[in-house]
Write a protein that binds this DNA or RNA. Structure first.
Length: 475
DNA sequence: CCGCCAATAAACATCC
DNA sequence: TGGATGTTTATTGGCG
């Protein structure tokens, strides 16, 4: 990977639309700095201080990249990519072409973005209102924000899939158990009233593959990786108002960081500091919806609504599983950190299958995935803490009833978040326990389905004991 | 030189 | 049946 070199006195080219870009331009002129990355970080850090949302930095970061032409840290052209991104062995030079300007100052969509595939996937998923995306939409997001890949060989899609499969940060959400189940387990005529209001369910939820989400346990790592990119507002290249004791001076004055840079490697996978504003915002927003992944963000017409629908349905139908025996760690004492999890349940529902089931039986919760529109999100927001029990449409009850049978054998996917070797080992271990566990879990689920509140502690306790046993065994 | 990491290619299986 | 998706293995190069 080529070094990031700042040619002196070279001016940024390309359009600079948008407030961030204008701020960047202004900053650039003010400081006469040739470091566009520095300017972007400063601009976005400034914007961050103005209470930008956690998604805003992402949008603006990528938008700015767009305006800058998606140049790449690695000066790898599509042609080079056709050779596996590597120079031919006979080539006298294996370094990036020196004649090309570095990432920050080049224009045109011909260069690779500075983000690793993991970061790209992370951004794509985070950018989705539902925080879940099928592979196809991940492709689409990457293409939309980094046109480089439009002209790149198709191998990058393989890399995306490879990353999704191999990287434990990414978690597969089986659509078979979520969306499609809605249709499969509904008799003719039962679903039509809802599908009328939500045609996307028919069009999009039946398809190949799964949805991919960020594993909450590893989300910090991805944020950290993203922070290390030279264009990220949390890039440690600039002094920040944060007074975290763990923030070393080196963090603020280190060379440009990007995935693959020395400091990235040194700190890879190690959480140094999570921006509190991101945590707080995520917590605040997540608490506003019955389904925490449905956020009152402006949703663009079809695709994002569809992902919201997917998410709502996925959560709705997997809530019981997750509540009963979640692979996620128990809520930490630090509520803020807990809320950082984009896919974690809201405090009122996490780990509480009874409230989950009852909430699924309310008109309000139904309206979320029935309509999947902004307006109904607000409605749910009003009702999220008091689930009216008098209005129970047939669909949720139907699904609830059928899920009891349906979840057998699908109560969880053991070790989805673990590395492959660990996953395999755990799979072996889990298979031995599976029968016992299934009986117990099914029993708990049946029991809980009949008890509306305050009776999930046994299930949680049982789950905890099982997890402890499992951990001991794996150690 | 070695280990780690990321990217890439490819084979293969599964599903729709 | 073809394409999309998902998993796995192997290889390569950069870097410390």
């Amino acid at each position: 990977m080529g070094p990031v070199v700042m040619p002196p006195g070279k001016k940024a080219e390309g359009p600079s639309s948008g407030s961030v870009a204008r701020g960047l331009s202004q900053l650039y002129q003010d400081t006469e700095a040739a470091d566009l990355s520095l300017a972007l970080s400063a601009s976005l850090s400034r914007a961050e201080d103005e209470e930008l949302t956690s998604l805003s930095w992402l949008h603006e970061s990528t938008d700015l990249l767009t305006s800058l032409g998606h140049s790449g840290l690695r000066s790898v052209s599509p042609l080079q990519d056709a050779n596996g991104g590597r120079e031919p062995s006979s080539s006298p030079s294996s370094s990036p072409e020196p004649s090309e300007p570095p990432y920050h100052l080049s224009t045109g969509p011909s260069r690779k973005p500075p983000y690793s595939f993991s970061c790209l996937i992370f951004m794509a998923i985070e950018d989705a209102p539902s925080k879940r995306l099928p592979v196809k939409d991940i492709y689409g997001w990457i293409l939309e924000h980094f046109p480089y890949f439009a002209s790149a060989p198709t191998g990058w899609k393989n890399s995306v899939r490879h990353n999704l499969s191999l990287n434990k940060c990414f978690k597969k959400v089986d659509k078979d158990r979520s969306q499609r189940g809605v249709i499969w387990f509904c008799q003719a005529g039962e679903l039509e009233p809802y599908l009328d209001a939500m045609p996307e369910l028919v069009n999009d939820s039946i398809g190949k593959g799964s949805l991919w989400s960020i594993d909450p346990d590893y989300r910090h790592n991805l944020i950290q990786a993203l922070k290390k990119t030279p264009y990220h507002p949390y890039s440690p290249r600039l002094p920040k108002p944060s007074t975290s004791p763990s923030a070393s001076p080196q963090q603020y004055h280190s060379p440009p960081l990007w995935p693959g840079s020395p400091l990235f490697r040194k700190n890879g996978g190690v959480l140094l500091q999570v921006p509190q504003r991101v945590i707080q915002h995520s917590s605040r927003v997540a608490a506003q919806g019955l389904f925490p992944v449905i956020r009152p963000l402006p949703l663009s017409p079809v695709s994002k609504r569809t992902t919201a629908v997917r998410s709502a349905l996925g959560d709705y139908l997997t809530r019981g599983k997750n509540s009963l025996c979640s692979d996620s760690p128990p809520p930490s004492d630090d509520q803020q950190e807990d809320h950082t999890y984009s896919s974690s349940q809201s405090p009122s529902t996490k780990g509480d299958i009874s409230s989950s089931l009852s909430s699924c039986s309310t008109q309000g919760s139904l309206s979320v995935y029935s309509h999947g529109q902004e307006a109904t999100v607000t409605e749910v927001k009003e009702e999220q803490k008091d689930f009216p029990l008098d209005a129970s449409p047939p669909l949720p009850q139907l699904l609830q009833r059928r899920r009891l049978l349906w979840t057998k054998g699908h109560l969880r996917t053991p070790g989805d978040t673990l590395p492959l070797k660990k996953r395999r080992a755990e799979n072996l271990l889990v298979k031995e326990e599976e029968d016992e566990e299934m009986k117990e879990a099914a029993g708990s689920l049946l029991h809980l389905a009949g008890v509306r509140t305050g009776s999930n502690k046994n299930a949680q306790r049982a789950c905890k004991v099982q997890k402890e046993l499992k951990e001991e065994a794996s150690d």
